[in-house]
Design a protein around this nucleic acid. Sequence first.
DNA 1: CAAGGCTACTGTATCGTTACAGATTTCTCA
DNA 2: TGAGAAATCTGTAACGATACAGTAGCCTTG
Lengths: 342, 342
Amino acid sequence: MDENNKGRQATIPPSMNERPTLKTIAFMTGLGITTVSRALKDAPDIGAETKERVRLVAKQVGYQPNRAGVRLRTGKTNVISLVLSLEEEVMGLTSPMVIGISEILASTPYHLVVTPYSSSKDALVPVRYVLDTGAADGVIISRTEPKDPRVALMMERNFPFVTHGRTDMGLAHPYHDFDNEGFAYEAVKRLVDLGRKRIALLQPPPRLTFHRHMRDGFDRAIRDFGVETIAFNTVDIDNTLVEIRAAFETLMRSPDAPDGIVSGSGAAAIALIAGLETVGKKLNQDIDMVSKVPSDFLSWLRPEVITMNEDIRHAGRELAKAVIGRIAGTPTEELQSLSKAV
Amino acid sequence: MDENNKGRQATIPPSMNERPTLKTIAFMTGLGITTVSRALKDAPDIGAETKERVRLVAKQVGYQPNRAGVRLRTGKTNVISLVLSLEEEVMGLTSPMVIGISEILASTPYHLVVTPYSSSKDALVPVRYVLDTGAADGVIISRTEPKDPRVALMMERNFPFVTHGRTDMGLAHPYHDFDNEGFAYEAVKRLVDLGRKRIALLQPPPRLTFHRHMRDGFDRAIRDFGVETIAFNTVDIDNTLVEIRAAFETLMRSPDAPDGIVSGSGAAAIALIAGLETVGKKLNQDIDMVSKVPSDFLSWLRPEVITMNEDIRHAGRELAKAVIGRIAGTPTEELQSLSKAV
DNA sequence: CAAGGCTACTGTATCGTTACAGATTTCTCA
DNA sequence: TGAGAAATCTGTAACGATACAGTAGCCTTG
């Protein structure tokens, strides 16, 4: 078309008004597009002075690589996908989580995409979607199960991911987890320190991995301190608050009501409090309670409850670092971490 | 390269193992890539039977358009960007918001990307980023100000967006807002119904638009019901809980302590409760409180507080519908909505 | 001083899609 | 019957980036 169109890549001067591309820089520096591309990624076969010049111009014009271009050519999406359940959303745990992840991603080229699934039986759907469409470079999942099919799938495909919570499949993968074993042990200890001897646990659903952890810590403490376990298995922290309250009322009215209770979730603790107050019992008198909480609002309203804080924002940060590490090839052992209550 | 390479687009049979593209379908149907592309978007110049055939094959092989390809060619990203503050995050409001948005986007080709900014003075940064890089097709922002520079910028560039909260710039744009005027009016009314006469308001920071709305509703009710306003302007709902408690303690100890208080935020209400209980006052006796809350946990622990629920998840849904509508060209008037407390 | 090697740079093809400008065949109607 | 319209279909180029396979010039080295 154009007479100038021979022997040179960047012939048509790109308009100043539009978003600068490699072509823009190539035109401005008089270099080839390839050279500019390689200069910007500090390739060894480009002269030092040229690199400097290219970097300068790129900065001047505010060059930012076109994500679609990179993605199409290389397959790299620069996206981290956070897989979320729309249903089992409890007391806004995802909020600080998203914040924490964002904090870390902000200083990287990664974007955070939220990929939801609606019912727990569809948990595999978003994972499959990401795998099949290459929608992200890495995935973050929560609510892990001992034998987690999502983990199995991503391991099999060698796809970078990190879990919030551990698994038990004999497969090493990046994770971040809260030390629920330690939490439960310490919680019982605190109750024992207050002279409590008949202790119940409101635990996570058996399906999830941390059920075992919390249970183990609890049971170990019960043995170590020689106190008694009061069974409370009719509900778990995934039940509705109304159900939890009802169940706890029943328990508190029964002859073997506990004098200490450990709550695996802050939201559930609210229901427990409501339940015991309904039957006329009082915290610090008839019963003491220790609860894992994601924020400190509970201690504002019921300072009688002993709270142990799970820092979800911190978890978000750790998870983000771990996926990125996994993508970058950091050995798995360095991408596994546990948090204690703070 | 290949002898077959003449006169036909899709010559090399795409491997069955890889992700299907238009080329795959073209090969399988014996049609041209262009035809397949146009058939799938139901273009008028493609035969009915051909369309049917293409659709069938596409479904069979599980074809999903490559987002990078579309984005590169058309500029359409199929991304909605939720702009979030990392700092002013109050009591997990973003969580149900994200869920609500996701619910709507799930049945569309849109993905949700979270784009954070760290300090309120940088609120323009993510918006500029999206505008400059074309990172999204639409933006959702919160914490609007009467003269909001983000809104001005996006309006000027004619970029699709929706605000959570209104503005006051004489520019019509899509928004969803909670009816804070109505909330405050109703809140005062409830206090008056309980016989309260000296009423304070813990309001949003004056910078934000809904400060005016809440203030107006409050003031109107004060006039209508002929009761007295007790000034409480030393803090607002963006202060820390500790600051709010301290300020409220001071107020409650002063000679003109209020006998009714309206809280513009559920988190702040916790601090208010703590403050008044510290000075030995009792809810329902010395003072009554109405609070706007994002969830119902407050009524579990302090049923004495009258709560009015702001359904953030619903707001998320409305916002998502509004941006999509804006992108699709729906008239602005149809994309503005207000929610009452539920 | 020729052969080979090194340094610095560049063109082409390609990723998957779509806009656009044809191309081919069949149909219509004067 | 033949010209033009209508109905279908198709190739090429382009979006922005990068992998790859060069090329040109200069420097060694025997």
